[in-house]
């Protein structure tokens, strides 16, 4: 996997329920354009236009807590975000979004060491995250080989095809 470079598109706190990214009232939408219309509407009404392809979400501990539905990350991928760095993940969220093609990385204390729009540079193979804006460097938690395969394959569909 090549180096992952992008800005911190948003920094979420601990135990974050990702359904809030689109609002609970929108968890049954299946049309991607409609999902994008409500993406982050409570946090940043200009989110879509503020985002560059390759930007990165930063989360705290237990990111994805609750009963995460797929819609929020369908929306994120549609605007060009497919990398998350969080301190830890709720189990179902991790498995679901790994399968969906998100690159999910873990890094201790990252949510308090990144500010929104900081430039980040992640080397998955070396296990390093550099915060270019702040001039700091952090170690990533080692990724399970099957999870790495799934990230490289773009999710479970690509993984199954390769197998």
């Amino acid at each position: 996997m090549e180096s992952l470079k992008g800005r911190a598109a948003y920094v979420f706190g601990d135990n974050y329920d990702i359904d809030l990214i689109i609002g609970i009232e929108n968890i049954s939408i299946s049309d991607t354009d409609k999902i994008v219309d409500v993406l982050m509407y409570k946090y940043d009404s200009e989110f879509k236009s503020n985002i560059n392809v390759g930007d990165i979400l930063v989360g705290g501990k237990n990111f994805g807590y609750g009963h995460p539905h797929p819609q929020a990350m369908v929306g994120m991928r549609a605007v060009g975000i497919d990398v998350i760095v969080a301190e830890s993940y709720a189990f179902p969220f991790y498995r679901s979004e790994l399968a969906s093609g998100m690159k999910l990385l873990e890094c201790a204390d990252i949510s308090t060491n990144v500010s929104r729009w900081d430039e980040l540079d992640i080397d998955v193979h070396q296990g390093l995250l550099r915060n270019i804006t702040q001039g700091t460097e952090f170690k990533l938690k080692e990724v399970t080989p099957i999870a790495l395969d799934m990230m490289t394959a773009g999710g479970v569909e690509g993984y199954l095809k390769k197998r």
């Binding site: 797929p70 679901s96 399968a99």
Partner: peptide, 8 residues
């Protein structure tokens, strides 16, 4: 529960 990975 493994959500969308249930495809596997």
């Amino acid at each position: 529960g493994i959500m969308k990975e249930v495809l596997m």
